[in-house]
Amino acid sequence: MFSEIRVATVGVGDLERSQEFYCATFDYAVLGTGTVSGPAAGQLWGLPEGMSAETVLLGPAGATSGLLRLVQFDRPGELYWGDYSRMQDYGHYALNVRVPEIQSAVAAIRAHGGSSRSGPTHWTVTPDLSAWDSLSYDPDRVLLDVFELEPAPGSLLAEYDGRPSPLQTVAIHSSDARRSALFYAALGMRPLYDKVLREMESFFGLPAGTELHNINMMNPAAPDLGRLEIAQYVGFPGRSQRDRAVPPALGILSAALETDDLAAAELLLQAIGAEPAGERVELDLPGLGTVATRSYFGPDDERLEFYERR
């Protein structure tokens, strides 16, 4: 019934600057542009009355999933994560992109207007998968987790075309990783891995002794993109950012999944206790066309869009 994450929507301060950054750094192409406004957009994104947004849809040429929607509102906003001094707070947190070679990718981020937070660090994900992982910022200081994978033959992620990927995952911070995983399992996702990471405090900037419960959820039909990475800082509680992660804020505002039956999707979401974030609406989304769509809040108040193409 549900796809992997098709699109992540990110509020930016300068659309042209951000578009140039992602296209130059990851060789992304423009897949759609346009203006979004009106009551339907208000229901979908929480767009205040009278506000409009210029949008551009980006991804590798030919990609149809794991896409990045950049949105510049006609009023200024601030990054809702602020200076990340409360990085334990909940909600959409980072965009994860796979690259063929980590050092050159980090250099490209810096060269095109981004900055680094944590240099490449090697860690073992599963017995058949390890990674060189890094944390960087885009020009608006939206967090990017850029990584080079070392999969063993036969791993679900072994197939790779050697280019920067679509969005491999969208990361959320959660108050309870297990509860969040159960919610997304009801949407058809399954764990790629589920583990507790220790001694990673310096990489993530966590207080000494904090453990990271990390569950990477995938759609079995598309394990190599559009996944959800759930991160819980065990013993380091945060707070909801629901009231801050709204237009015209900068940062990751929502993640969108496609469905072939929105009415049935609404019934399922109601059954699992998802809270609607707006009414069902129909509108034209640049790069996707006309869709019937509705937003809900996930377990940690992260905004999720579910849409059916018309």
Rank of each mutant, 00 (worst) to 15 (best):
E20Q: 15
R69W: 00
D138N: 11
R75F: 07
R190C: 03
L57I: 07
A277R: 08
A177F: 01
S165L: 03
I230W: 00
D260P: 07
G119S: 11
S65M: 06
S136M: 10
A271G: 11
V56L: 12
R239Q: 14
L197E: 09
L182W: 09
L57Y: 03
F147Q: 03
T259R: 01
G119Y: 10
H173R: 15
P286Q: 06
T9H: 14
L269D: 10
G289F: 10
E78I: 05
D161Q: 08
Q19D: 04
Y193Q: 03
S118Y: 02
L57K: 02
V99D: 01
M200I: 14
V30I: 15
Y22H: 05
E148F: 09
A221M: 08
L95I: 10
V7Q: 13
S85G: 12
D14L: 07
S104L: 11
Y90K: 08
D301Q: 13
G188P: 04
A40P: 02
P100M: 05
E78D: 15
L135D: 02
D161S: 09
F73E: 01
P153H: 05
L44G: 04
S3I: 13
G13V: 09
A177L: 01
L268M: 13
V291T: 09
F147D: 01
S116C: 12
A265I: 09
L285Y: 11
S175T: 02
P191N: 08
A177S: 13
P100H: 05
A8P: 00
A221T: 12
L143D: 07
M51V: 14
A107G: 00
G42E: 06
G66V: 00
F203A: 10
P286D: 03
R310N: 10
S174M: 10
I272Q: 06
L79Q: 12
S134P: 14
G11T: 01
K195E: 07
E275G: 04
L47G: 09
S104Q: 15
